[in-house]
Amino acid sequence: MSTKMDNYYYEKLEELQQLDFGLVELTLYLDTHPNDLQALQQFNQLAQQRQQCAHQFEMRYGPLLQYGHSLSRYPWQWVDTPWPWQV
């Protein structure tokens, strides 16, 4: 029996992707524009949003990152499917 992930799982992952992409773009932008206040505020906002989104996801589906960057429930969830390439 293969586990089937619900829509919320994919929506959350997509939202996480969007936030991460925005953060990457803003990081690169801020490297060359250190005194752009507006972009810096946007970056901090997105970073907070990203933390909340990742937290919600991890509370429901398990750890996103390893080696202490995410928490896990009992039993150890890291080995559960779907693995990143199976998503």
């Binding site: 997509e14 992707q17 969007q18 936030l19 992409f21 925005g22 773009e25 803003l26 932008y29 060359t32 524009h33 752009d36 507006q38 972009a39």
Partner: peptide, 21 residues
Amino acid sequence: PYQPMNLPQFPLHEALRRGTL
């Protein structure tokens, strides 16, 4: 040559699809 500040931005979901903010 040098990206000006405060350029208009795509909404995030669109930025992800288009590859730039």
